[in-house]
Design a protein around this nucleic acid. Structure first.
Lengths: 217, 217
DNA sequence: CGCACTCTGTTACATTATTAACCAGATTCA
DNA sequence: TGAATCTGGTTAATAATGTAACAGAGTGCG
């Protein structure tokens, strides 16, 4: 995906973490927090936290720190969590069902409004008060019900054609759980959750760890 | 987690992708490939690919390129995919069940040998020819059956204590699906799959995209 | 009300990651 | 066989990211 904004992805990917930790503080009735305290909690350096936050404006105050409540809400706004996103899930297999039932999803303003599958055996089943629809009906469904995010939970073979269908429908963002790199126009946002790559990374680190243990002996 | 190896994580996280694309080439009976061709396929620069691969040794040959079969296997070895990992899943909810049934998991040498849950209603259920066991039996189970990787699929509240139990059992790596940063000793490998952060990133990018559209008008 | 202290915003520096440039070895085709 | 071409390994240059340093705004206590 092309990006015009000057904010680097490195910064963007830290924002959710700040948001989460600030939420925790808020739950513990903490009113104010300094970058140094945040540093201890999050593990990032205080310097980095101050710099990150300053990309979006001066939320803090010298000699005081940051107001937890205010900062939490500001970051929420920056992340776009003050709105509702309509999503559809493509593929009602294990992953698709897990996402559909993922309560966090709902709580954060991501509303699943449709689930689709290609398997006639699965179409018609109900998942969380929704009936699974066939892939072929996606385009007409989206015309009636605008969709912001499409979640791809199909096997690898189907993922590219499903992505293309979503793009044709005008879906602006894709959350991809299939182990491929989808080819879509630059204007479409793709966020991959590549479990296999994550797993292989563990495998690598385990092997590396073992080899170091051996060397020690 | 502490790391001693000189290989940077940036490189490590690209290896699975190389491995995947090489597997595709292999399936298409492609025998040789140059860094330039790989560049077109993967989207990384040829320079980067050559440099990455050279961290582990000179697998290519001037004027020829890389032998696909050999490179695929070498990267597989580097990633530690030539061995079997015994895993247990902590939490038999939506995510835990999805992982347990994830066929890719099996195919790549990650064998689920146990599933645990804290809910007495869930304990005793069978998932994929396994019976869900109570959390309390983890330690004795692991003593009998060595475990390499523990997968945390519990709600947030339980994740830290479950992680600590795994560490006590001597589990060396944790694949964490709970939305927290676990506190474990440095020697334990933790790989997070933070779906919420991934989702919030989409949210941010969607908002950014919309704002840029507005400006154009 | 003022002074010592705190803590941000910001700029300067250091480190890491990515890309480009180049050379020599190997290949291929005539 | 040999010249033109290709391509990997390696070093150098550039870009991106992260860390440290510091001035001064603002706090809070006496």
């Amino acid at each position: 995906m092309e990006r015009f904004s000057s904010i680097s992805m490195a910064v963007v990917r830290r924002l959710p973490k700040y948001h989460r930790y600030l939420g925790d503080l808020l739950n513990n009735d903490v009113r104010r927090v300094s970058s140094q305290e945040l540093s201890k909690i999050t593990g990032f350096t205080a310097s980095q936290i101050r710099q990150d936050l300053n990309c979006f404006g001066g939320f803090g105050q010298q000699g005081y720190g940051y107001n937890v409540d205010e900062l939490y809400n500001e970051i929420g706004k920056i992340l776009g969590l003050d709105r509702l996103y309509r999503t559809i899930i493509m593929g009602a297999g294990n992953v698709g069902r897990a996402i559909a039932n993922y309560t966090f999803f709902d709580k954060s303003g991501f509303k699943v409004i449709g689930i689709f599958d290609s398997n006639p055996q699965v179409v018609g089943n109900s998942i969380k008060d929704m009936t699974v629809m066939p892939f072929s009906s996606v385009e007409s469904f989206v015309q009636e019900n605008p969709v912001d995010i499409g979640v791809i939970c199909t096997p690898r073979e189907q993922s590219q054609s499903v992505a293309e269908a979503l793009v044709r429908c005008g879906v602006k963002a894709i959350w991809n759980f299939a182990p491929t790199d989808l080819k879509v126009p630059d204007s479409v946002i793709v966020e991959n959750v590549h479990l296999s790559e994550s797993l292989f990374t563990i495998s690598y680190l385990l092997k590396e760890h073992e080899e170091l243990e051996k060397k020690k002996k």
